[in-house]
């Protein structure tokens, strides 16, 4: 089977998201607080998974810009939960060899005075494997 199709099934299974439930209302993208910085937006994630465009998504910086704020998950009228889908794709991406988005030696330069530990642990959890 096509690698993209396999990946598409894998991310749906791991996120518990059924992309076919989407009715294309645009609520997720309307609600996204980080919209301006993202190359692909929540509704596109859903649509692209449905159309097996995983290779494109896996390379996109948008994976690391989702704030995990769950606003789209809370407000989606169809229970599609796009935020969980983004998370599952990001997991696929960082689990690939040498594909960590953040490396420990980068931390020192990024760390500023008073930054809470929470920021670093969360970023590690989001960006690396």
């Amino acid at each position: 089977m096509d690698k993209n199709k396999l990946l598409s099934e894998q991310v749906q299974r791991n996120s518990g998201v059924d992309v076919s439930k989407c009715m294309r209302c645009g609520k997720c993208t309307a609600t996204c607080p980080n919209y301006d910085l993202m190359e692909y937006h929540p509704h596109q994630f859903v649509n692209m998974v449905e159309n097996d465009k995983l290779d494109v998504l896996m390379k996109s910086s948008s994976l690391y810009l989702c704030l995990n704020c769950f606003a789209c998950v809370e407000r989606c009228p169809r229970g599609v939960e796009p935020g969980k889908l983004v998370e599952a794709i990001r997991l696929e991406a960082v689990r690939q060899k040498e594909n960590n988005h953040l490396k420990p030696d980068q931390i020192v330069e990024k760390l500023t005075e008073g930054m809470p530990q929470q920021a670093i642990t969360t970023a590690f959890r989001k960006y690396t494997k």
Binding site: P33, N34, D36, L37, Y64, L65, L67, N68, C69, A71, L102, K110, M115, Q118, A119, I120, T122, A123, K126
Partner: peptide
């Protein structure tokens, strides 16, 4: 109940600042 930008501050201080 809108997001403050969370952990992205580590990479991009401006982005969190907008929120």
């Amino acid at each position: 109940n809108e997001c403050c930008g969370g952990y992205t501050i580590l990479e991009d201080t401006d982005a969190a600042g907008r929120n």
